[in-house]
Amino acid sequence: MKTMELVFLLIFFPVTLSVKHSLKFSDTASSGVKNFPDFVVVGLVDEVPLGYCDSISKLPEFKQDWSQKLIEEDPQQLEIYTQECLSSQYKYKDHIDILKQQLNQTEGVHIFQRMSGCEWDDETGEVNGFLQFGFDGEDFIAFDLKTLTWIAPKPQAVITKHKRDRERPNNVIWNYFLTQQCPDLLKRYLDYGKSSLLRTELPSVSLLQKTPSSPVSCHATGFYPHRAMMFWRKDGEELHEDVEHGEILPNHDGSFQMSVDLNLSSVTPEDWRRYECVFHLSGVRDDIVTKLDKAVIRTNCEFPAGPVIGGVVGLLLLAVCITGVFIWRRKDNGERQTYFYSS
């Protein structure tokens, strides 16, 4: 294809970038932890809390206007959420007791969690489901959707793997939930929450430096969704050395922030012009490129304290529900399945 033809197509027929959306359910159970619920479950759509329930409140709470509207228009979902919230806390207690006996760890504090859900590519239609369990901060067992069998990363989980492999009907049900029902739910939630979930907000990007000898931080704040990446490059090539990437943090207004630091201790002033910071937001074709220029660097601790503090607080609150620690939970034969989340 000739160059001018390619330019014409890019101008009048812009490239549509695919975006992966996700629906996750995080169930956490604890034993021996004081002043904390024995059971917590949270549902998230694209990392945004959909609803929450714990063993203290015993009733689901819906965190978004659109999720509350969905429940009002479909009371059956509220009934399903409520039944699962009430029944799961008792089942979790039995499961964690069995697991402690199996591992001969009956004393002390124990935490285990199940993370289940799916991802859907809105351009290709590709679906990926996942189901993982862990115990006391370590991976314990995970479901293989291709073989409908279980993977045990450690010897202590082999007994559980064999038991679950024999429960073929339950594995088939899990496969159907993760590859069929979960994506259907995700699409429905995205439709209800499209005004907020599917919005795109570009950030303001600043170069920050605490002292003249400190690394230069490229800081982006106010972007949405959270699916973003940022990096430094030199002469058009991404840098990996002398670079430190920060985590994506939530702001108090529902947007996100992130930063990436560049150590310039070995860079001469003449070479600064060869460096630039690149911010990329999923689904957006054009990146935000910021040249390394001493004249635009904010110094004297001019970091945006408000958004940063808000982001840290938001992250800590969200961490109560999403620990990232996957744990095993025994599944009894014949227990009821729902299209929300099954035990």
Rank of each mutant, 00 (worst) to 15 (best):
K2W: 03
T3C: 01
L9V: 14
I11L: 15
I11F: 12
F13V: 01
V15E: 14
L17M: 12
V19R: 13
K20S: 12
S31Q: 05
S31H: 12
S31V: 02
G32E: 06
G32Y: 08
G32T: 04
N35E: 13
V40L: 03
V41M: 10
E47M: 08
C53A: 13
I56W: 13
L59S: 06
E61W: 08
W66L: 11
L70A: 15
E73V: 06
E73H: 10
P75I: 11
Q76K: 12
Q76I: 09
Q77G: 05
Q77K: 14
L78E: 14
I80F: 04
I80G: 09
Y81K: 12
T82R: 09
C85L: 07
C85M: 03
L86T: 10
Y90D: 14
K93L: 11
D94H: 12
I96E: 04
N104Q: 15
V109E: 15
V109A: 08
D122N: 07
D122T: 01
D122W: 05
D122I: 00
T124G: 10
V127A: 08
N128C: 06
G129P: 05
G129I: 09
F130T: 05
Q132N: 08
G137R: 05
E138M: 12
F140P: 02
I141A: 10
A142C: 03
D144S: 04
K146V: 01
L148V: 02
W150D: 06
P153A: 14
P153T: 07
K154L: 05
R166S: 01
Y176H: 13
F177Q: 15
L178H: 07
Q181Y: 07
C182D: 02
C182K: 02
R188I: 01
R188K: 15
Y189E: 02
L190W: 00
S195K: 05
E201V: 09
E201F: 00
S204A: 10
V205K: 09
S206A: 02
L207S: 01
S214E: 05
C218M: 13
C218R: 14
M229S: 12
M230F: 05
F231R: 08
D235S: 15
G236K: 06
V243M: 07
E244H: 08
E244Y: 10
G246S: 06
E247C: 05
H252S: 15
F256P: 00
M258N: 06
E270F: 00
R274I: 03
E276C: 07
C277W: 00
V278S: 02
F279L: 02
L281T: 06
G283S: 03
V284I: 10
V284D: 00
D287A: 09
I288M: 10
V289M: 09
L292S: 05
F303C: 09
G310Q: 06
G310R: 04
G310P: 03
G314L: 13
L317T: 02
C321P: 02
G324A: 10
K331I: 15
D332N: 11
N333F: 08
F340Y: 14
